[in-house]
Design a protein around this nucleic acid. Structure first.
Lengths: 129, 129
DNA sequence: CGGGAAAGTCTCATATTGAGACCTATACCC
DNA sequence: GGGTATAGGTCTCAATATGAGACTTTCCCG
C-alpha cells in the first residue's frame, strides 16, 4: 500500500510488521478460505467421504475439495482415514479442535441468517443509486 | 464436481440446489473474503480514513482496499462519508449492523488466538511426515 | 517552484481457481 | 466378456481474482 522504493517486505520489517508472524492472520487465512466453512459445516453433521462431500457441495471442484481438506488436515482440524475397501474409501471427520471451532463458526452463520434480509435491502438501495 | 454432461447450473437446478439463493453463502462469501475481516477489525477500534486503513494494513493493495470497502458499504456494514476538506478526505465507519457483526467475528479471532499453538504443532507434525 | 497529501482509477503481471480428462482397481449387469 | 460405475484423487489448461505501481486533481507547505 505504502508508496516507497524499497520492497514491501523490507519496509514492513523496518516498521516491525510481520504478517507471517501474525497468528490471527495465519489462522484466519485458513478458516476464511473460500470453501473451508462450507466443508466444516458438512463435516459437523457427520464424518463423510470425499465424494459424499463433493455431492453435498456440488459447486466445489475436486481440486479445491482436495486442497481444502489437506489444509484442514495439516492444521489438525480434520482427520483423514483410509478404509481398506475395494476401491479404498477415505473418510474425513472433525478432530476435537475442529469441533471447538464450530461454536464460533456457527455464531457467524447465525449472524448471516439473521442479517440476510437487511443486507439484501442495503444492496438494493446501493445498486439503485 | 459431479461428472455429467449437462452444465453444472442445469444439474443443480434439477436437484433444487441454487447457490445464489443461499443466504449463508451470500453473506459468508463477503465476510470470509480475503481482507474483510482485517478491515473490520481496524474499523472496530475507530472510524478511519482510506489512507489510514492502508497504513494500518500495509500489505493490502489500494485496489483491494477500495473494493473491500465498496462491498462492505453496499452490504450496509460500513458507511462512507466524504469531508469537504482540501483535499477531500473520506472516512469509513461501522454501521449498527457492522457493529453487530463484531461479536461473532471476535469469537473467531479469539478462537484463532487460543489455537494458534496447537495448529502450529499440527502443521509441524504433518510437514515432518 | 518543488513536493507531498488526499482517495482513488487504470493497466498490466502474477496467482489462485475452475473445468474436465485421466488413472487404477474392482464389481455389477446382461 | 464388454460396457459402466464406483472410489479418491492428479494433471493440464483456461478463466478469474489479486497485486504492483503509474497517473490524476487540487490544494498547502516551505
Amino acid at each position: 500500500m505504502r508508496d516507497m522504493e524499497a520492497t514491501r517486505r523490507e519496509m514492513w520489517e523496518a516498521m516491525g510488521f510481520f504478517p507471517d508472524n501474525c497468528p490471527i492472520r495465519m489462522v484466519l487465512d485458513h478458516v476464511a478460505a473460500k470453501w473451508t466453512l462450507l466443508v466444516l459445516l458438512e463435516l459437523q453433521a457427520k464424518p463423510m467421504r470425499f465424494n459424499a462431500l463433493g455431492r453435498a457441495l456440488p459447486d466445489i471442484s475436486k481440486r479445491m475439495l482436495t486442497q481444502t481438506l489437506r489444509d484442514l488436515e495439516r492444521d489438525g482440524i480434520v482427520t483423514r482415514e483410509v478404509f481398506d475397501t475395494k476401491p479404498p474409501s477415505v473418510e474425513y471427520a472433525l478432530t476435537d479442535m475442529g469441533r471447538s471451532l464450530m461454536g464460533p463458526l456457527l455464531g457467524l452463520v447465525d449472524w448471516a441468517e439473521r442479517h440476510m434480509d437487511p443486507i439484501r435491502d442495503a444492496q438494493r438501495v446501493y445498486d439503485a443509486a
